[in-house]
Nucleic acid binder design. Structure first.
Length: 574
RNA sequence: GGGCCAGUAGCUCAACGGAUAGAGCAACGGCCUUCUAAGCCGUAGGUUGGGGGUUCGAGUCCCUCCUGGCUCGCCA
C-alpha cells in the first residue's frame, strides 16, 4: 500500500535528520494532496518537526528533503521525480514515471487480488445486520442496513479479517405472538366465522391474510383448531415470513453465513444461565416482582428489567445471552461484534454496553453502526410507514421498481449516519440519470474497446505483459489514471477501519470521471487502439487495469459489471 | 426536559485536524463522419445554521445557542 510505503520512507528520513527525536510519539501524516501541483503524496512532517525542534518549518523541510533525496537516489527504482517544500509546511513528493508504471504492473499481476490484503489479520468480526422481526416483509430501512452490512463484510474479508455474517431472528418475543393472533383473526374472517378483530398491537398488513390463507389451504388448519395448533401456526407464520425475507435479501444480493434464532437461546437454556451468573455475582435485584440488572448510572443508563413480573424474559435478557454466545462461540473466535442497527435503537446502546461489561467483556469490542432512517418520498411527499398498520413501502417493491443495482448504489452513496431521502418517483422516472449507470457505463465502455480490439484480431493477452515498461503511456491523463488506481488498496484499508463504505462509491465516481474525460478528450486523436503499437500496448494495459479495478470494486459493492449497455434509443420506455 | 444523529451551492450529498470547501441533479451555452453522447467541455451557484474557544492550521475538535429527525416501556 502506497501510504504505508511512504510513511516508512518519511519516518526513516525524519529519524536520520533528527536523530535525537522520539518519532513514535509524533503524529506525522501522509496525505494525498487535493491539487496536482502539490504532488502525488505529501507529509506534514515539517510542521510537526518545526514545533518539536523549534525551528521554522522551511528549515525542517530542507533537512528532510535532503534525506528523502538520499533515500530516493539510493534505490535503483527511485520513487520520486521531485521532492519539494510547500507553504505553510508540507513536503510534496511527485511520483517518478517508474513508480507509476510499477503500480500498473502490480494491478496487471494481481488481477482480482488487487486491493485484497493477503496478510491475514487473525481478528474475528461477527457482524449482525438486518435482524428484522419475522413479523412482516422487509421495508426500505432494512434494505439500507442490509446493503451496508453486506458490503462492509465483504470489504473486511478482503482486508484479511475473519468475518461471520449473521441475521438474528427475533422469533421468541411478544411481537411474534401479536403476529399469530393477527393470523388467527384473519383465519376467522376467511372462514366466515366472524369479523377479523386485529388488536391494536397486531399486524394489519395484507401479507397476514396470505399466511392465514396458506394455513387453511396447505396446512389444513381451520379456525376451530387454532387453540390446539397455536405452536404450529406460530412456526408456520415465522417460517413463511422468513422465507419471504430470505427471498428479498437474495434479490438484493445480500448474503448471510448464519441465521441465529432467539428461541434457540431459550431452548438451550442460555438466557437462564446468563441470569443465574448475574445472580451469583449479585449483579441483579428484585423489585415489584421483576428482576432488574444493576446498571451504573455513570454509564448513561438506569437499571433495566431482565425478567418481567409475569415471569417472561425481556428482549434485553435474551439479547445479553445472545451477545455472550457471540463472544464464546468457537472458542472465542470473534473478538469484535459489529451490530448494524436502525437509528431508532440508539437509546439501547448504553444498556447493552453496560451488559457487555457486566459479562466481563471489553465494551469497546461491542461496535454499533447506526444506520439512520430512510425517508421515503413519493411525488415529493414523505410517506409515513408503520409495519403494524401495514402501511409501508416494501423492499421488494423498491427492488422491483428501481432494480437491485440502483437500490444498492443509492444506499451506499450516503454515510450511514446521515438520513437518506429515497424518492421513488425520481429513481423511477429519471432512472437513466441514476449514478449507478454512470459507473457501469464506464465499465461497459472499456469492455467495448477490448471487444473491438479482439474483433480487429489483436491478441491482447499476448501483447500485454505485466513485466513491460509500457513506454507508450506518455499522456498525463494516463499516468493520472494509474495513480488513482494506486489509491485503491489504501482506500479499502481505510474503509475497513472506518466502516464507511460510501467512500468506495465516491472513489469509483472519480475514477470513472477521469476515464470518461480521458476517453472523450482523445477519442479523435489518441485512441487506445492506436496505429502506434507501443501506444496501443500501453493503453490496452491501462484499460485492462481499469477494468480490473472496477470489477473488483463492483464485486465488493455487489453491483453488476455489464459488458455492454444498450444505447440510448434502444432502452425500454420507462 | 435528558440523550443520539444531522445542519455545507436551489435540491441530494462528499471532504484521515491540512493548503484556494468539491461532486451529482436541476438551470443556461456548446461537443457525435468517433474505440458506445447513459459521455465530455463551459457558465452560474457558498459568510460550511449563529456566536465564542483550542492551534502553525477548524466544515472537521471543545463550549454555547438555534433548527430538523429519532429516542427516552416490565415493546422488540
Amino acid at each position: 500500500m502506497i501510504k504505508n510505503h511512504f510513511y516508512d520512507i518519511v519516518l526513516k528520513a525524519v529519524r536520520e535528520a533528527f536523530s535525537e527525536v522520539d518519532t513514535e510519539a509524533l503524529r506525522i501524516d501522509i496525505l494525498k494532496p487535493r491539487k496536482p501541483e502539490w504532488g502525488d503524496i505529501s507529509t506534514n512532517a515539517p510542521m510537526i518537526m518545526s514545533k518539536v525542534m523549534k525551528i521554522p518549518p522551511k528549515e525542517a523541510a530542507n533537512l528532510l528533503i535532503l534525506r528523502l533525496n538520499e533515500i530516493n537516489d539510493s534505490l535503483n527504482n527511485s520513487f520520486a521525480s521531485k521532492i519539494e517544500f510547500a507553504e505553510p509546511g508540507f513536503v510534496n513528493i511527485f511520483f517518478s514515471r517508474k513508480f507509476i508504471i510499477k503500480i500498473l504492473r502490480v494491478i496487471l499481476k494481481e488481477r482480482e487480488g488487487f486491493g485484497v490484503c493477503s496478510e491475514k489479520k487473525g481478528l474475528g468480526y461477527l457482524i449482525e445486520y438486518v435482524s428484522a422481526n419475522p413479523t412482516g416483509p422487509l421495508h426500505i430501512g432494512h434494505g439500507r442496513g442490509a446493503v451496508f452490512g453486506d458490503v462492509i463484510s465483504k470489504i473486511l474479508i478482503s482486508q484479511g479479517y475473519d468475518v461471520l455474517r449473521e441475521f438474528y431472528v427475533n422469533d421468541a418475543g411478544a411481537q411474534v405472538k401479536n403476529l399469530v393472533v393477527s393470523v388467527i383473526e384473519r383465519m376467522k374472517e376467511i372462514e366466515g366465522k366472524g369479523e377479523a378483530l386485529i388488536p391494536d398491537d397486531g399486524y394489519k398488513g395484507e401479507y397476514v391474510k396470505e399466511i392465514a390463507k396458506e394455513l387453511i389451504l396447505r396446512e389444513g388448519i381451520s379456525y376451530e383448531m387454532v387453540d390446539k395448533e397455536f405452536d404450529k401456526i406460530r412456526d408456520f407464520s415465522i417460517g413463511y415470513m422468513l422465507t419471504k425475507i430470505k427471498k428479498t435479501l437474495a434479490d438484493l444480493g445480500v448474503k448471510f453465513d448464519s441465521f441465529y434464532f432467539e428461541k434457540s437461546l431459550f431452548d438451550k437454556g442460555l438466557v437462564e444461565r446468563c441470569i443465574q451468573d448475574f445472580e451469583r455475582e449479585s449483579k441483579v435485584f428484585e423489585k415489584d416482582g421483576a428482576l432488574f440488572l444493576k446498571i451504573d448510572s455513570a454509564e448513561g443508563d438506569k437499571d433495566r428489567v431482565l425478567r418481567k413480573s409475569d415471569g417472561h424474559y425481556t428482549y434485553f435478557a435474551s439479547d445479553i445471552a445472545y451477545h455472550k454466545d457471540k463472544f464464546e462461540r468457537e472458542g472465542g473466535r470473534y473478538k469484535k461484534l459489529i451490530n448494524v442497527w436502525g437509528a431508532d435503537h440508539h437509546g439501547y446502546i448504553p444498556r447493552m454496553r453496560s451488559a457487555i461489561r457486566l459479562l466481563g467483556y471489553d465494551p469497546d469490542s461491542f461496535i454499533v453502526v447506526l444506520v439512520q432512517m430512510v425517508k421515503v418520498l413519493k411525488s415529493g411527499k414523505p410517506i409515513k410507514m408503520s409495519k403494524r398498520e401495514g402501511d409501508f413501502v416494501t423492499l421488494d417493491e423498491i427492488i422491483r421498481e428501481v432494480g437491485k443495482d440502483a437500490t444498492r448504489y443509492t444506499f451506499l452513496m450516503r454515510k450511514s449516519d446521515a438520513q437518506l431521502e429515497f424518492d421513488i418517483d425520481i429513481l423511477k422516472s429519471h432512472s437513466l440519470n441514476n449514478p449507478v449507470y454512470y459507473a457501469q457505463y464506464g465499465y461497459a465502455r472499456i469492455c467495448s474497446i477490448l471487444r473491438r480490439a479482439s474483433e480487429c484480431g489483436i491478441k491482447i493477452d499476448e501483447i500485454v505483459s505485466p513485466e513491460d515498461e509500457f513506454d507508450g503511456l506518455r499522456l498525463q491523463e494516463e499516468l493520472d489514471l494509474i495513480k488513482k488506481m494506486g489509491e485503491y488498496p489504501d482506500l479499502l484499508d481505510t474503509i475497513a477501519k472506518s466502516l464507511e463504505p460510501h467512500l468506495l462509491v465516491y472513489y469509483i465516481q472519480e475514477l470513472q470521471s477521469m476515464f470518461h474525460q480521458y476517453y472523450t478528450k482523445y477519442k479523435k486523436t489518441e485512441k487506445v487502439l492506436s496505429d502506434d503499437p507501443l501506444k496501443m500496448k500501453g493503453r490496452l494495459a491501462l484499460v485492462l487495469a481499469l477494468k480490473n479495478v472496477l470489477k473488483n470494486a463492483f464485486d465488493l459493492m455487489g453491483i453488476d459489471a455489464p459488458e455492454r449497455m444498450s444505447l440510448k434509443g434502444e432502452e425500454d420506455e420507462e
